[in-house]
Design a protein around this nucleic acid. Structure first.
Lengths: 224, 224
DNA sequence: GCCCGCCGTTCACGCGCCGTTCATCTTGGC
DNA sequence: GCCAAGATGAACGGCGCGTGAACGGCGGGC
């Protein structure tokens, strides 16, 4: 499990996040503003930071910026409802993901796990799921004892789906992860890459499949 | 295995580095600043030094400089994210490699092993891989019972790939290792040398091959 | 000191892969 | 059955990389 920094000036939000993450087995370090957060980061080995945008003293943006320069820690921003500009600004500063308040605890857990998986993978170069292994430094997929080499976009798409296996990801979300939040092209490009992945990994042969959730997006399922 | 000096003023970083390296079978000597480090070096036979740039009293730069003048020990610098100037300054002073904090333990291990291999090779003049032997004294490659003499750049390129066999190295990284961090020329020069190596060591005859990972770089693979 | 060959680098060209778009067909929900 | 959303097949354009060649510097041989 991981040690996670939670920076928010509202005590009950901190409490909610803490209990949610601790129930998952993580260790939580709290901070009420950016200053406290920086302080905690100096003394604790933190693997992920959950940061509220609106904080007194040093706000979430400043903290994000500082963290990006100083540490290689995934950042999950908490933004208020409707503040789209906050989301964009946060991502531009280097945040990895964002969550709109109020949020469902399950949503928080899912995003935290996805971020941890992603960073862990980047670290050791491989992501493991049941019967599936993604090798990031060769863009290869290992399954059924075979190795398949993939083009960059296909690999990253599959990887993003795999990092959030079991959750449905919208095209928007996938584009943001694989192409970057400022991608200008067509949403439908995702479909084509999905198809190519499905062609390369037919579900009756490989232990996973990419399922379409009509109106929502795609999800990777590991075969039972 | 080796005895490794770890100099960092942050205890949890020292602890992380220690546990990571000890898990690999190395012995670790700790120091909280440059002064302690110099002290330890006087009493311990150290084969490698992991040094944080930012330390009180005597900082990483001074220590690096001193070490370069006094000892022939590989130096791995730890620098803060975004401090490119630190990286350059460190390399200029004679550091062998750098790692941006915070880092993945696997990354640390990979770099430490690569440095030890490189220095061990320089010491006894040879690097051995399965069925492949690189003689640094003469820039010769021994394989299939034959010896082939190589031009300097080709040899160093092959050597760099071999020292990190199994890992993909970007053109950037290869240039930094072979040509130096301040090389100004074209990235594609690497390609040409790769081609010449491939011509000299066809994979159906020699027990290794240089593989292209599109969009990432090159990697040396030892044939199974 | 001159010539010649080696070696590092650059350049131009071409191929094939890959990302993207578009048009058309299929599917699924109401 | 209608409409919207997704699947599919094809085409195209760009770009990454491989490759052959040329050029210039440097050092060694005579």
């Amino acid at each position: 499990m991981a040690t996670i920094l939670v920076a928010d000036d509202e005590p009950h939000i901190r409490e909610l996040v803490r209990s949610t993450l601790e129930r998952e087995g993580h260790r939580v370090v709290e901070a009420a503003d950016g200053r406290e957060a920086a302080d905690a980061l100096a003394h604790e080995p933190v693997q992920l930071a959950v940061i509220d945008v609106m904080m007194p003293e040093v706000d979430g943006f400043e903290l994000t910026q500082w963290l990006r320069e100083e540490r290689d820690v995934p950042i999950l921003l908490l933004t208020a409802l409707g503040e789209t500009s906050h989301k964009v600004r946060g991502l531009r500063l280097g945040a990895d993901d964002y969550l709109v308040k109020p949020f469902a605890p399950e949503e928080l857990v899912a995003r935290v796990e996805a971020l941890l998986r992603r960073y862990r993978m980047r670290a050791d170069g491989a992501l493991d799921l049941a019967g599936l292994r993604l090798l990031s430094d060769t863009y290869e997929v290992e399954a059924n004892g075979e190795r398949t080499s993939l083009p960059p976009k296909e690999f990253q798409l599959l990887f993003t789906l795999a990092a959030s296996a079991g959750r449905t990801l919208s095209r928007d979300k996938l584009i943001e992860e694989v192409w970057g939040y400022d991608y200008a092209g067509d949403e439908r490009t995702v479909d084509v890459h999905i198809k190519r992945l499905r062609d390369k990994f037919p579900e009756d042969i490989y232990p996973f499949r990419i399922r379409t959730v009509r109106g929502l997006g795609y999800r990777l399922e590991v075969n039972a």
